[in-house]
Design a protein around this nucleic acid. Structure first.
Lengths: 323, 323
DNA sequence: CTGTTAGCGCCTTCAC
DNA sequence: GTGAAGGCGCTAACAG
């Protein structure tokens, strides 16, 4: 980052003081129009790039928000990133993304990294619902998106109604004739807990038994989802399977061809364009990503403007994509 | 970013000078072990977070590299991000991502943004091969990945051999009996030009005619890929179709069900897990993303260490995934 | 082993 | 309409 022009350089070449350059570049009416444009042109020609680090340290503001997500390979999160970036750009904020790869340690590092860069606020899709956020975050304005920590609402949270969403998916399976529905749930996130709850609820509502034998949970990095798929679907043990997220769903699909099955249903959470083209047809719950992203960003900006807002929780209703 | 502890605060509470705090936190052996640990503990307890902006401005280094990509919704680029982040972390560098959404203006803004943040170097997957990078980049150490600007090699570039990759895909189609192969190419990127060239080459190699009527190019944001698909496949105009990237491929798949076709082949560039589950079976060229990312990062770090390296180009060979 | 001093690049009073 | 001076938080050279 060396050999860069500074305001001092510009001031010398223009024969004015640094202060004047600073004002000119800020287009302040306090400097004569002639010199103002002269300096601006000079800066342009010489390819001057203001040092935002220095500026930020002076004005105590970076105009940047940090975003921490568990898995950048998950299309749900990339869509969320897009939505938030767009909303931020419109408000003249930049966004810097950090990926935790579902690892609590990496999430801690991410928080410290972004605090070190003095972002004005943080958007977090929690990797570990039991993380000690109070200690880590201190007074940093923070909004949780999609995945919030356990416990009382001490931060703003904009979430999807996972319980209701899963209920709808499962209810749909039942309506279509499924009676023994297995579930492969994801990691220990709050999302997972809620989806399991929705699953239970739906079975109870329809007077079906909840059988622990067909409820399994997979740490995604652990390569055993395919094995679980076999155990659940073989020998007519289940006639339907709910994969709690995209990653799991793909693993399930990998295993299917080996198993010779007659009638069965597969469903999941999080919709994807490619789901339109795979067989068997897969029904999913689809989250209003755009909406969530925009709302989260706006909430964060509001909180940055006023640290004393009361933390609130907002739930968004997912839709059902029947296939 | 206000109300944060500074070294001055720590110095006061510890009854030492700022300099000592600075040294203690850097774990310098020049400060007595007792005071060192005392200060470190204090910092820990109070949740002190060093201001990296101030540090960077002082040491003239951010330990951060910027990465500019055209489309974060494209899984190819998210995989590339992952590869580069991992490699960077291992070398104690942070990565900040900016997405251009395939818009040259946004790419210009991105370069300026990252220069303003004084990143130590830039990794760019070019959005516009005719962008005036020389002017924009100045002396910023830069390596192009996957998509490079047109013209002579004035920057390092780590690319995929798109010509060879496409040739292989097309040759595979021909081997399997295709005789009239249409192509829907992507935007005006260098990648697109090369894939078209590979397509032509493959046809010529097999003594097949190159018919301009079945070569079309789609700006992806423009919603006409489906129409092109119909035009190319209807009435047996073509017996195979090559979609030059993922986005285009998805559009093609959307259109297929409407068209009642007998035998035909679809193929594409960039492999995805879900391609294993769609019908028709789709053969693709698969890029060695991991390898490219690591190589690009290493090259950039080498260049940061020594600005006077001669720019070089390296091509990676894509594999063929036959389905 | 520790403190003093200076300065990184910028913005913002306060003067004139 | 412009300049001089100070300070944001940090590190590094120089003293002692």
């Amino acid at each position: 980052m060396a050999d860069k022009l500074t305001m001092k350089d510009l001031a010398q070449r223009a024969g004015v003081s640094e202060a004047t350059v600073s004002r000119a570049l800020a287009d302040s009416p306090r400097v004569k129009l002639a010199t103002r444009t002269r300096i601006q042109r000079l800066a342009q020609e010489l390819g001057y790039s203001p040092n935002q680090l220095a500026r930020s340290i002076r004005v105590q503001r970076t105009q940047t928000i940090g975003m921490i997500i568990p898995n950048i390979l998950n299309p749900f999160f990339t869509s969320l990133i897009r939505a938030i970036e767009d909303a931020a750009k419109a408000q003249h904020y930049d966004v810097v993304i950090v990926n935790t790869d579902e690892q609590p340690d990496a999430e801690r590092d991410a928080i410290q990294l972004l605090q070190g860069k003095r972002v004005d606020g943080l958007l977090i899709a929690s990797t570990d619902p039991n993380q000690d956020y109070d200690r880590l975050l201190g007074a940093t304005p923070t909004v949780f998106v999609d995945r919030a920590p356990n416990g009382p609402i001490t931060y703003d949270r904009l979430l999807v109604d996972n319980v209701a969403g899963t209920q709808r998916v499962i209810a749909n399976l039942i309506t279509r004739g499924a009676r023994r529905i297995g579930i492969i749930n994801s990691s220990a996130s709050a999302t997972a807990t809620e989806r399991l709850q929705g699953y239970r609820q739906a079975l109870l509502n329809h007077g079906l038994p909840v059988d622990p034998d067909i409820i399994v949970s997979a740490r995604k990095d652990n390569g055993n989802v395919q094995q679980m798929t076999r155990q659940l679907l073989q020998n007519q043990k289940c006639d339907a399977l709910f994969a709690a997220d995209n990653t799991i769903l793909l693993e399930v699909l990998h295993k299917l061809p080996e198993l010779t099955l007659s009638t069965y249903f597969i469903s999941g959470f999080d919709d994807n364009d490619w789901l339109n083209f795979v067989s068997p047809a897969i029904t999913t719950a689809k989250q209003p990503i755009q909406e969530i992203g925009v709302a989260a960003l706006n909430r964060l900006l509001a909180r940055i403007a006023n640290h004393h807002l009361l933390p609130t929780e907002k739930r968004f209703q997912p839709g059902l994509v029947v296939r």
